[in-house]
Design a protein around this nucleic acid. Structure first.
Length: 1084
RNA sequence: GCCCAGAUGGCGGAAUUGGUAGACGCGCCAGACUCAAAAUCUGGUUUUCGCAAGAAAGUGCAGGUUCGAUUCCUGUUCUGGGCACCA
């Protein structure tokens, strides 16, 4: 009987399906094992031979664990939302739902062809409403939660509200902006909108503003992928940054836990390192550099300087929030405030006063801006400790920024208001007026000419503070507009325009030094030195504070910048700086560094931080490179947000209203302001706006959709209980299946999916929905299989193609040719002529009668004509051969090129295995007792295959199978007691042939349910070892020694050996190294 | 630019903890079977020198540590992945 793999494989695939052999039950008493592949995106191109690499590996592992007696969950599903389907829809008009469905069907067919043991009854698709109902539900949990920094976990927002009601936010600093502070009374006085705005700053899923790549010509937002060199990939149209309302996940709150969690999970060191680098925790200091007022006032309202309200003293980012507080305070003055205001208003004192005025993020009771005087009335609630803290912070800020603060008690105001006024007027006369503006009272701290503004920088090297030679702001920094002098404004606007045309990636990768001087200066906080302020693209707005203090002698980029723009460099590290390049050493002893002189840099860090804090000009600070995750896309094909916007407040849908289904659309054009296509479907957007939609009347649905990683962040949980319509997964099921034991996928997900998924798991755990806070216990990274492309060389301007070896004699164009019509390197010239109509008339210049192609290893892709379809391989050699060959190619985590030719070897191995059972039609297997050497071969194989499978070294396991079958063939062994266990070993790798032969042996149950054979050490015992003997490290001979030979005896025998003596060349041995069981080395 | 990984025969790779470099397979060469081919089987195959026995060199490159380095350290080159809207 021949090895008829086609018949065998089809037969068993059908049988397994009918027997539902892959059906997995939530079988609580049995030990479990959860083996998962990273979610595939069902692309239209179908699977190529590179895709199944990881799937085969996980399949083998899952089957292996099953043989070991585990209840193995090994599911598969599809990450079915995504950009490509929508892009395809835009191009062809086919609805993404239709193409996605089609793609999934062909993926599944291809997968089934390879014989994976998926339980398809557990399949999930992110685009299925039954699935995304729970994605939306989890989103709402994140929306309804905040991160308590004290308990270090997510908590429901309802608890936050009760904290605010009792004690304000002093124990729960605002993650969005730490300067936002309010007392319980203030909170309770807020109107609903204000409260919601405040809460938004705490929510784990929140709405903010962010830049997108906006392409006016295409009228759409582009992915980074679609932007090349600042223009759109399609059409080459200009792309600019556009600020849009966006959802975010507050993953930064989890930064520390994401770092700590890395210690408990088995990811490769490289992977952990990538994640911690991405999180980028650094400890240093935040330092305030005050701005120096320019010598001349700048004109107002010039085109280059968008006019800002001149009276603005508030920090703009906080203004909307603080304004609400201020207005409420104004509307509800205390009795004493009222009294005093009557005396101060309408310039009664001769000075202009404002009440409940905002300065930075603080509200003062009364302020005379021209004199920088503020007046506080100490109200009753100021006894509240939180309010006292707020007052203290305010006083500190005002003092640092040149204000004079007067404080009066309520009693003083009530008893003798005239004395209070006298006191104020007296102080006003003493204070200098703020000069320079036509109305100084209206021209205050923001913008040039305005003292009091400052630049905050974060630095990990506060010890280099005296080496600061300039400051650099990110082009997006809010101060850039305001501080740029009129002389520089043209240059600056040109520079900003240039930067706007560039992607963040380009900016980071740029070697060329670019920048623009603002014309403004900062003041060194210790020396008072004037420091020029520059703007450059190498400083990114999102990192730290978007501003840096540049220390050229210690930082290479700063150094290059200083050199390029001829900025004088201060050397604070003596000989450590050679004048040619920066030295980032921490070892140097500081010079020209004031109070740090003579100190080692690493010791100086602490000293500086303490000094900064003492002087109130800086503080110790932990900074993270990681930013909050942008969680919305202006696209159609994704999960809709279960959010209604009503009067600027985000109102969540109720659980019973989920899923909020994606409407059917015919067109995919973006909304008028760049919103997602959903914005155009007013019927959908306003579906909750009907008169019956009480309370939310007039509200409109969010029109963004969720990004690709929404559905993939939690899918591993859904597999545990995929049909549950009452919850995302039953707690009993998630407790049982628990963490994914082995997760297999590519490193390209290192910092995206894997981090988001870890965060979601932590949040769900914090909120009590699941019992573990790391999703993946062990991660295996699979490499890629690259394509091996072939080229032909067309003589330019002709129909002649010249063979690779002769191409240098001609002027040629290199063209990709389909690898399927090339045998090795030899082109099938007839097939080539038929391949494309263009080549029908091709003529060939051959070498040695053949056309030899050129080659290159590149990514496997349709456009390179180097794609090899697994279906063709499976058809030609069978699924078992294909599976084993993919594994045999090399280590799972390495990338390697595909070479179809090599598959013959694996195929021959399976045929050889078959021949151990059959010769022609004769069944050879007998029931003889195996000999010792046969048992040794078997047990060596059991040991090796078990160990290799467990450490995911599948290539060496396949080798061992080959060695085993080769050795058994030499011994002409056809014994059931050897072959039967061997089939069980092989079943995870080549399930079909194993099952067939297993049944040929007379078994009635499936080999998939057999028990993995036990390994018996006894068969491998050796009593002597052939030691390699080296002289001076070079192996010269081999000598047998029994395992229990004594050291002395061995030495004597080695020295007596003829070959050893020859190489010792008459010299005496200085040392004899004997490593038991390994080797012997004689040193002369 | 920054972060991570990799580099071993003609090719894919092995050497699991610092201990005989090249297992296993492809390809190639020779042979057997055959009218022939396919399939199968046997032997050989890192390079250089040598009829051979054997010798020398050799794991991207340059150094270092060690009795001994593919393995550890320093530097360097090239290739691949990631860099926040491809998934």
């Amino acid at each position: 009987m021949e090895y008829q793999f086609r018949i065998i494989e089809k037969k068993w695939q059908k049988n397994w399906e009918e027997e539902k052999i892959y059906r997995v039950e939530n079988d609580y008493p049995r030990p479990k094992c959860y083996v998962l592949d990273m979610f595939p995106y069902p692309s239209g191109a179908g699977l190529h031979v590179g895709h199944p690499l990881g799937y085969i590996a996980s399949d083998i592992y899952a089957r292996y664990k099953r043989l070991q007696g585990y209840n193995v969950l090994h599911p598969m599903g599809f990450d079915a939302f995504g950009l490509p389907a929508e892009q395809y829809a835009i191009e062809t008009g086919q609805h993404p739902a239709v193409t996605t469905e089609k793609n999934i069907a062909s993926f599944k067919e291809q997968m089934n062809n390879i014989g994976f043991c998926y339980d398809w009854s557990r399949e999930v698709r992110t685009s299925d409403p039954d699935y995304y109902k729970w994605t939306q539900w989890i989103f709402l949990q994140l929306f309804q939660s905040w991160y308590d920094r004290n308990t270090k976990k997510a908590e429901p927002v309802s608890r936050l509200i009760s904290i605010f009601e009792k004690e304000g936010n002093f124990s729960q600093s605002c993650p969005q902006d730490e300067s936002v502070q309010f007392s319980a009374d203030q909170w309770n006085a807020f109107d609903e909108k204000t409260k919601q705005d405040v809460l938004m700053n705490y929510r784990l899923a929140y709405c903010g503003y962010g830049d997108v790549n906006w392409c006016e010509a295409l009228g759409t937002v582009l992915a980074n992928d679609e932007v090349v060199n600042g223009v759109s990939e399609r059409g080459g149209y200009p792309v600019v940054k556009k600020r849009l309302r966006q959802w975010y996940l507050r993953i930064t709150e989890y930064a520390d836990r994401l770092l700590e969690g890395l210690q408990q999970i088995e990811f490769s060191e490289a992977m952990k390192e990538m994640q911690s680098n991405w999180i980028g925790k650094s400890v240093g200091a935040e330092i305030i550099f005050p701005l120096k007022a320019p010598s001349r006032p700048s004109p107002v309202g010039k085109e280059s300087q968008p006019a800002r309200p001149r009276h603005e003293t508030a920090q703009p980012s906080l203004y909307p929030l603080t304004k609400e507080f201020a207005v409420q305070n104004r509307n509800n003055p205390t009795h004493e405030e009222k009294l005093l205001w009557e005396e101060l208003r309408h310039n009664k004192t001769g000075f202009h006063f404002r009440r409940q005025h905002i300065i930075n993020s603080f509200i003062v009771d009364f302020a005379c801006l021209k004199k920088k005087l503020t007046v506080e009335i100490d109200g009753g609630y100021h006894k509240n400790p939180d309010q006292q803290f707020y007052d203290k912070e305010r006083t500190k800020f005002l003092l640092e920024n040149g204000y004079k603060e007067l404080r009066f008690s309520n009693e003083e105001v009530r008893k003798n208001i005239n004395k209070v006024i006298e006191c104020i007027v007296e102080e006003l006369h003493k204070l200098p007026s703020v000069e320079g503006k036509e109305n100084a009272g209206k021209a205050f701290p923001l913008g040039e000419g305005l003292d009091g503004a400052s630049i905050r920088v974060f630095t990990t090297r506060p010890d280099t503070i005296f080496g600061v030679d300039f400051m650099v702001l990110a082009p997006e920094h809010e101060l850039v507009d305001q501080i740029t002098t009129p002389e520089q404004s043209k240059a600056m606007s040109d520079y900003i325009a240039y930067v706007n045309s560039r992607s963040e990636r380009e900016r980071m990768a740029e070697k060329k030094i670019t920048g623009c001087f603002t014309g403004a200066y900062a003041v060194h906080p210790f020396t008072g030195k004037k420091i020029p302020i520059w703007v450059s693209e190498y400083v990114l707005a999102g990192y730290g504070t978007g501003a840096i203090m540049a220390v050229p002698c210690g930082d290479e980029r700063d150094h290059k910048f200083a050199r390029h723009f001829n900025i004088p460099i201060t050397n604070i590290i003596g000989n450590y700086y050679n004048g040619e390049e920066a030295n980032p050493s921490k070892e140097a002893v500081l010079q020209h560094s004031d109070f740090l002189n003579g100190m080692r840099m690493q010791d100086a860090v602490e000293v500086v931080i303490r000094q900064l804090e003492e002087n109130g000009i800086g503080k110790r600070k932990v900074n993270y490179k990681m930013r909050d995750a942008a969680f919305s896309r202006q696209r159609y094909w994704g999960e809709p947000f279960p959010i209604i916007w009503k009067d600027g407040v985000a109102v969540p849908l109720e659980e019973k209203e989920l899923p909020l289904k994606l409407p059917h659309v015919e067109a995919y054009k973006p909304g008028p302001e760049g919103e997602g296509p959903l914005a155009n479907i007013s019927g959908w957007v306003n579906q909750f706006s009907s008169p019956s939609g009480e309370g939310r009347m007039g509200g409109a649905l969010e029109t963004n959709t969720m990004p690709g990683y929404a559905g993939s962040s939690w899918y591993f949980l859904r597999y545990m209980d995929p049909h549950n319509d009452g919850e995302f997964a039953e707690r009993k099921a998630t407790d049982y299946w628990n963490q994914v034991d082995v997760y297999i996928g590519g490193t390209e997900h290192a910092v995206g999916h894997l981090l988001y998924s870890r965060m979601w798991t932590k949040a769900l755990c914090d909120l009590g929905y699941i019992g573990f806070d790391e999703p993946y216990k062990k991660l295996i990274n699979q490499g890629k299989i690259t394509g091996d492309s072939r080229f032909v060389y067309r003589v330019s301007g002709t129909d002649q193609f010249v063979s690779h070896g002769l191409k240098d004699k001609y002027q040629t164009d290199e063209l990709h040719v389909d690898v399927n019509i090339v045998d090795g390197f030899v082109l099938d010239t007839e097939a080539f002529k038929k391949w494309k109509p263009d080549f029908a008339g091709a003529a060939f210049i051959l070498e040695n009668g053949q056309y030899i192609c050129g080659s290159a290893v590149e990514k496997m892709s349709k456009s390179k004509y180097n794609v090899v379809n697994p279906d063709i391989i499976v058809d030609k050699y069978g699924a078992d051969t294909f599976r084993m060959y993919e594994m045999f190619l090399g280590p799972i985590e390495q990338s390697k090129p595909w070479d179809t030719k090599g598959i013959e070897g694996v195929h021959r191995f399976l045929k050889k295995l078959w021949r151990s059972f059959f010769e022609q039609d004769i069944f050879l297997v007998n029931d003889e007792e195996p000999a010792e050497n046969e048992l040794r071969i078997l047990h060596k194989t059991i040991k090796k295959v078990r160990e290799d499978t467990e450490r995911f070294s599948f290539n060496t396991a396949v080798s061992q199978f080959m060695i085993c079958v080769n050795e058994l063939a030499v011994l002409n062994c056809h014994k059931r007691k050897i072959l039967e266990p061997l089939l069980i070993l092989l079943a995870p790798y080549a399930p079909h042939i194993s099952e067939e032969l297993w049944h040929q042996l007379g078994n009635k149950t499936s080999v998939l349910n057999a028990a993995f054979p036990a390994f018996n050490e006894q068969y491998l015992k050796e009593n002597s070892i052939n030691y390699p003997v080296a002289v001076n490290g070079k192996t010269r001979t081999e000598i047998f020694f029994s395992l229990d030979a004594g050291q002395k005896d061995m030495e004597n025998e080695v020295l007596a050996n003829e070959t050893v003596q020859k190489w010792m060349n008459g010299k005496s041995a200085r040392k004899i190294i004997i490593v038991k069981g390994r080797m012997i080395n004689v040193v002369v």
